[in-house]
Design a binder for these strands. Structure first.
Length: 645
RNA sequence: GCCGAUGUAGCUCAGCUGGUCAGAGCUACUGAUUUGUAAUCAGUAGGUCGGGGGUUCGAAUCCCUCCAUCGGCUCCA
């Protein structure tokens, strides 16, 4: 009996019933058959060796498909488990999935010591087992049978997994000496795995729950070719060079000091410039958008955080209270309550709305020690914060305007890789985790979703992650080493204003509670600058660069002229320095290049006589000569263009 | 906070199993050199080897503890 297989190009081929996807691949070409890793059969990713019994849509998946990669990585996790079992008999395994870059397996070594030093021997064993090209054999088992198997083995982890599985759908896979409970799919045999790197070993809570015991998680990655592993390792090496902690030190942007405390960055002069420039941009942008600037203290009494509702919810991440005059004071972890108090003082009518209060507010959050991470996760932070108070009718327009501001900033910084994460509420948790106002939740979530759709912004919707007072949008970006961060946030709050008794008089002379939008498009100085360092690899655009121009005299005879050039630059609002060290010009150029200064001006006898400068651009070399004034004009024009996109 | 690792001059690092092991390069400073588009030469200075405790005749090296950092987990802007 024949079955019809439809391939992605819609061509249909006939095969005997029970043929496998691998048979199909072989019928197309020998090369494809060698490279194919898994198959999508009627939408589901399956083993290549699974017999197909009826007509089907078939896509053959190779290393170029995400599912092909993850199938191979998942099989690699099994291979690693086999190697581990060889050296550590009696180890227990929890789960071993494929992840973005490779795979991991969570392992309970039962008290046997295991550290990064042991990875090499596991790697070598894996390579040896891979060479044997052992097939991954699938076997269906009844639930009772499976329970008996793991009870005998004393494996409480797999028994736990079994608890959630339906009888009749339980499959096992065996390769070589290792058998695992597993849904699959897998590659046909271990021989596909040609290059192996175990990358690190770390602790991970069982079931990702901090109250559970900790398992040992071993991460690794494999490739079908040795050269691809080498490329991957080289790519990692490049990424490490962009790490903001490394560049931040080299470029003297920030530092940490033991006496100051963990997570409390000191901004060095170059970092100070970055902050000044970012604030200049934000203040201009916000002024144009109708924001008013306010300033508030770094601390407040306990009563305010009880009013806002933050204290019970947030106390663990606030610095403990300071007590004086019989009152408790807290360092602020957020600016909103202070701003609410300002709104109240303004006592506006509907004619005054929307009111937009902006402040680069400094907050303090007691982050757990293990969470601290360079500038990306700190304990003192300055937020590009603002709160917009508006009527329900004004909400959509205001929210849209905030969104436009985000997009404008992204254009200025050339931020292209990001995802908007739209967090909504879970209706069953109304009144507990979320403010109990189902209609407002639905209304605002619909409005927010519509804004995202209308602006054609890529976004993912994540249920049950909203703030307690409303839905929110977070902008997710990635650090050089691939860690995901929330860069900016935009939250809707239809609850806390009422707790503060905020109101305005509407057109019908009634009191009404405003909706509040919390927004921070530039996140915090700390995280944003950390991100920018990696984004630009330290090669900041001209307007941000801490030093924009290095004036390099050929010899000390021209130091005087160099200083004259610098004065003129400063008069034209350009930041610069003169390198008047007793060094050769090659050395001065090299040092300025290493410091990533956008422009170098070489000045010697010729330049002094002609009142001009020889322009060299960072990374681009000699650009010819210009008069001093023409150079200043050129730079100012360049800055204007960078900022007016 | 949890698991694991690391911690030597301002920076990057060497220093094997305890006994000229306190070193190198860069930086800084001094002097010579007066230089034309990515490193001129020479000299000098700089560290109680993260802090504290212990083992030992003797500790950067071994043990304990605290602190910090790194890789993850949990959490988050």
């Amino acid at each position: 009996m024949q079955i019809k297989i439809t391939l992605p190009d819609q061509s249909v081929r006939e095969f005997p019933k029970g043929s496998t996807a691998l048979d199909v691949a072989k019928s197309i070409s020998e090369g494809l058959a060698r490279n194919v890793l898994a198959a999508r059969i009627n939408g589901e990713v399956r083993d290549l060796t699974l017999p197909i019994d009826e007509d089907a849509q078939l896509t053959l998946l190779t290393w170029n498909d995400a599912e092909g990669k993850s199938t191979m990585w998942h099989s690699s996790a099994h291979l690693m488990a086999e190697a581990l079992e060889h050296f550590y008999p009696g180890v227990k395994f929890w789960v071993g999935p494929a992840v973005q870059n490779g795979f991991y397996y969570d392992v309970d070594f039962g008290g046997q010591a295991f550290s990064a030093d042991d990875l090499k021997k596991i790697e070598d064993k894996m390579a040896e087992l891979a060479k044997q090209a052992n097939p991954y054999e699938r076997k269906l088992m009844s639930k009772d049978e499976a329970i008996r198997y793991f009870t005998e083995k004393g494996d409480q982890y797999k028994l736990d997994l079994l608890g959630n599985l339906q009888d009749g759908s339980i499959t096992f896979y065996t390769q070589g000496s290792f058998t695992d409970l597993c849904r699959g799919p897998h590659i046909p045999h271990t021989g596909y795995i040609k290059a192996i790197k175990l990358t690190n070993v770390a602790g991970a809570y069982w079931k990702n729950d901090a109250s559970n015991p900790m398992l040992t998680r071993i991460y690794g990655i494999t490739f079908p070719k040795k050269s691809e592993l080498d490329e991957y390792l080289a790519m990692l090496e490049e990424a490490r060079k962009r790490d903001h902690r490394k560049i931040g030190k080299e470029m003297e942007i920030f530092t940490f000091d033991d006496d100051v405390g963990p997570g409390l960055p000191l901004w060095l002069p170059n970092g100070g410039v970055l902050i000044e420039e970012l604030e200049r941009l934000a203040k201009k942008t916000e002024a144009v958008a109708g924001y008013k600037r306010v300033r508030t203290p770094h601390l407040a009494k306990e009563s305010m955080y009880l009013t806002s509702g933050h204290l019970p919810y947030y106390e663990d991440s606030m610095y403990p209270a300071m007590e004086f005059d019989g009152e408790k004071y807290y360092l602020k972890a957020m600016n909103c309550p202070h701003h609410h108090k300002i709104f109240k003082e303004l006592n506006p009518s509907y004619r005054d709305l929307p009111i937009r209060l902006a402040e680069y507010g400094t907050c303090y959050r007691y982050e757990q020690s293990g969470e601290l991470f360079g500038l990306m996760r700190v304990r003192s932070l300055q937020m590009n914060d603002a709160h917009i108070y508006c009527t329900r009718e004004q909400f959509a327009e205001e929210f849209n305007a905030v969104n436009d501001m985000y997009l404008k900033y992204f254009r200025i910084f050339g931020i292209e890789k990001y995802v908007m994460r739209f967090s909504t509420h879970e209706p069953s948790k109304l009144g507990q985790k979320y403010v109990n106002n189902p209609e407002l939740w639905k209304q605002t979530e619909d409005m927010v979703r519509q804004v995202l759709i209308d602006s054609k912004i890529p976004y993912v919707e994540v249920p049950d992650e909203g703030a307690f007072y409303g839905p929110k949008i977070d902008v997710q970006v990635w650090s050089a080493i691939g860690r995901e961060f929330t860069l900016a946030t935009n939250q809707v709050d239809f609850a806390v204003p009422a707790r503060f008794g905020l109101s305005f008089r509407n057109a019908k002379n009634e009191m009404e509670t405003p909706i509040c939008i919390h927004r921070a498009p530039l996140g915090t100085h700390e995280r944003f600058i950390g991100f920018l360092i990696e984004h630009f690899a330290g090669n900041f655009p001209l307007w941000l660069a801490p030093e924009q121009v290095a004036v390099l005299p050929i010899s000390d005879k021209f130091n005087g002229y160099a200083k004259k050039v610098l004065r003129q630059l400063i008069n034209s609002d350009i930041r610069g320095l003169v390198d008047d060290r007793d060094e050769k010009i090659g050395k001065k150029i090299r040092d300025a290049e290493v410091k990533k200064i956008p422009y170098m001006l070489i000045v010697g006898e010729k330049e002094e006589q002609e009142s001009c400068v020889s322009v060299r651009q960072h990374g681009k070399g000699d650009q010819g000569s210009l008069s001093i004034q023409a150079f200043c004009d050129k730079l100012n024009k360049e800055v204007d263009e960078l900022l007016s996109v």
